[in-house]
Design a protein around this nucleic acid. Structure first.
Lengths: 209, 209, 209, 209
DNA sequence: AATGAATGAGATTTCATTCAT
DNA sequence: CATGAATGAAATCTCATTCAT
């Protein structure tokens, strides 16, 4: 029942610390300059010491993305409101551009190297399944409340929204002048279609009237 | 004083050949395994020889992306129809997943390293400006033809569509089972909003009227 | 004063188990891929745990070779017949190519590093002394029975035979097609010289008459 | 016809120099402490520079063994006399114990790892084929001159002699007190069998007749 | 008797780049 | 216009070993 021993708890803590350090660093120095050596040093550990906790650099990276995903999931888990979920996600991502870039780069790699990067593929497939499920839930909720066309497949819409989220991020990184609030507003309007003239959902963080 | 024209033409030809080879290779072997050495060999050139034509590896990569962009721009230049433009872009991208991944990775890098990668940033800023302009033109056209809410800012919609395009790509790479046609259809419906019941725009490749 | 016997017996048992595991593994995966870590895991022990029983990896390896030697010595201890002794040794060695390779490699190292590997040198010197003694005994026996020229120094012949054994092994590993029986036959003939036309000794395992 | 360019000749020279340096070093410091880094430094080259000439460390090592083999082959190429060939080979080997150990270790590895070390296996198979052929030639010559039993297969004898050579080497390394001359003498006697009472061949370096 | 954690030293290899020719 | 040669910096990872518990 209980985990093998006391030290194990400590190990889990160390993993978390390392993962958080990795996520912090990737935003500070960018994912291309993020190296195993640098992470080890920042953690006050030797490279070999770090490899004791993670089997490889690649595995550590995936674990870091997974940790971020868990934090993200918690964030929107109780958000029934589409625009709020969207805004929350975006706001957080905006603060961790490096992590976003890392995510995208690794996703690209996993997608392009299905044979040699099975761990990566596995991770990203699951990530998108879960993320899609989460957004699907929200979209369905909007449909039930009459805020969105009930005839469209909620899962399809969820994937589209996920894509917008990923894609807008990149544009925003390259040009922070882009006003995201405005984009959310327009997106909400488009999503609502002709169903409600002033659907509360499109007002970012607005209290429904 | 001015150098003879002949060599210049040859140089330009070589650049083009190299760029096309690079784009072909990135799809065959993935951008992470694409190395300067490999490109040089495939071009039947020594590394030093290749560096005569391009100042650096990074510059070569950016040049390759630029070449792809030119080809892409030509493709949708005369497409007034939104869903056609969308489908055309996607169809081409689907055939060059490696180039898409490379693009995204370099964009991420440029965004995350504004100081050290000014060339990259410059390239991507211009790329998005041009791409946005292109899509803006199309969106405006749709609005003029009464296929889309004229009150929304066309540029904002254009950026959103661009984001969908970039984002859906990644999901599709990870799960080719995703039916893109279906997503286009739903996207079209959402874009059209309540303006037309069966707006021709949502029919992929359909002739209006 | 003296520690209780129980733990000692257990320790000795564990050492034996580890040694046998090591010998088994070296044949399965080759001596170059045989690592301390791998042995520990296969023994269901941690690395630190294994080091409790053996002072170092090198010591463990020497101990493993010593164990093999003991098994080998038992095998030919009661064999007065030269060709039988030869065949027995070879047959066993053929089934443990990894151990043979390990032996040779460590012997080479010990010979080449007399200063830094005194334990190794000590081991191999003793090994050859004992092996030579064993073969000398057999050669003498053959001479007494009139099967071999009594004028040659039996110890010298013993060393030569030992050398043939070690050397043929390598050739056989590289080309298992080499028929060892044939080589034994010829070797026996050469050893017998002109002393007996059909000396029983040269017929491998054959019943005389 | 002519090789591509002038510089090629220089490259061949460099390879030879590196190979000779490697062979010298392996005798000075032993093959287990011989590293790529050390060889590069001794050659006054960077590691990367050295890798320009050899694709990998393993390849360099095999090339070094091949060079040694060529030198060896030249040495006995014109020796029709068995004991002379034997003595020549041994004398040289005695001066390069490290190379002998390296050879044996790599042979063991190649034999034990046929799948992963195909280059090694290829090298050693060829090596033994050629060495066997050389000794076969000499043995046949001895038989023709009536110095050896003509009924035995010369190739089989050749392999046995090769084995003695490889095996005695190890024993001699471990105990340089072993008098090799004595062993040659006995070996010659055994080889000659009853054919000649005082066959000139058994006198090391003796002038026939 | 055995473990989890951590280390240090070093290994090979990759890769864009430089330079003289 | 192009090459062969050489480099430097860094990368990930291996492995036996140590130490406190």
């Amino acid at each position: 029942m209980s985990p093998p021993r006391g030290p194990y708890a400590k190990t889990a803590d160390i993993r978390e610390t390392v993962l958080d350090t990795t996520l912090r660093m990737v935003d500070e120095i960018g994912y291309e300059d993020l190296t195993f050596t640098a992470v080890a040093k920042e953690c006050g550990m030797s490279k070999a010491g770090l490899l004791y906790h993670f089997d490889s650099w690649h595995e550590l990276l995936l674990a870091a993305l997974e940790r971020r995903r868990n934090l993200d999931a918690d964030r929107i888990a109780n958000t029934p409101n589409l625009s709020d979920a969207f805004a929350l996600t975006f706001e957080h991502n905006s603060q961790v551009p490096g992590a976003v870039a890392l995510f995208t780069a690794m996703a690209g790699h996993a997608a392009a190297s299905p044979k040699t990067d099975s761990a990566g593929r596995q991770f990203f497939e699951r990530h998108y399944q879960e993320a899609t499920a989460e957004f699907t839930r929200i979209v369905s909720s909007e449909q039930e409340r009459g805020l969105m066309d009930p005839d469209v497949d909620p899962k399809t819409v969820a994937r589209i929204l996920l894509a917008v989220s990923d894609g807008l991020q990149i544009q925003w990184l390259l040009d922070p002048g882009i006003g995201m609030a405005e984009h959310f507003k327009v997106l909400g309007k488009l999503m609502a279609g002709g169903f409600r003239e002033n659907p509360p959902a499109v007002e970012i963080r607005a209290e429904p009237g």
